[in-house]
Amino acid sequence: MATTTVTTNEVPQRRVAPTGLALAWHRFKKSLRSPTPYLTVFGIFLWFFTYWLLCEGLQLPRFVKIPGPVTIISEWFSTNPSQGISIFTPEYYHHIAVSCRRIAIAFFLATAIGVPLGLLMGWSRAFHDYTFPILETLRPIPILAWVPLAILMFQGYETPVIFLATLASLFVTTLNTMLGVQSIDEAYFRAAGCLGSSKWDVFKHVVVPGALPYIFTGLQISIGVAWFSLVAAEMVSGDYGLGYLILSSYVNGVTVPMVIGMLTLGFVGWFTSVLVRMIGDRLMQWHVRALALQGR
């Protein structure tokens, strides 16, 4: 029995976990107290400074030909770009839109084929035995090596490019999904069996949700792979798109739009990958909350 009253300092007592905007604000405030945002800003500054120093500051011999950050940024945001591409030219957005559309189609196809394929491969031993050797043989072949075949197989610009991007991300998605199923603890299958599940119940309630964390990791990688294979494909066969912009600028000797194309590609690719992760987190509240409790 406690007989003395201990006076404590005022400790704020939060009983309900914040949600939505309040949660975002809470996270933002918390992050300001950690070194992360400052280091990030400093890091970006440092990289830009090095880049500037090499190209425009010291004008080192091999770097003079490369457009420096000041040139790039002033051109990128110029209303009247001397080399034809800036955020004020409709052409710029056309390139982005064309690439995004191709990625959307390729990523959708790869996911629609790869996830079911991977689930089956992980779940059914026989199906795995039929398909795994073929998958493993095709997977290491670089996407560029497929380009001639794709051009022979399909007509026009659009289909071969989409085919190549689909192919690249298909392998990643399939493999990760399969590993996801194989990573599920046997105990869950047994528990489901005890509780009277049919095969379909096991598939729906154990195989799919159990593999989901791996699937989404796979999708994040696969959308990145889709981007770089798309660009490779656009360089060879294309009329528009960021890959085409990069290569045609190089061929025409205008290096500034080339670098603008590269940076744009990086940002858009990053953004799509964040989008995939957000969708994953939405679908896997259980996973997110468990990780949050571990302080991650």
Binding site: D185, R190, A191, S197, D201, H205, W286
Partner: peptide
């Protein structure tokens, strides 16, 4: 395997992707 003999596992086998209530409801539902 059948619901007349149900195992409780050493390391626990509640489905981590279902809430406690969904886990408990699983048997009668399927």
């Amino acid at each position: 395997q059948g619901a007349d003999r149900i195992v409780v596992f050493q390391h626990g086998a509640l489905f981590p992707w279902k809430t406690l209530a969904e886990n408990v409801a699983y048997g009668p539902m399927v």
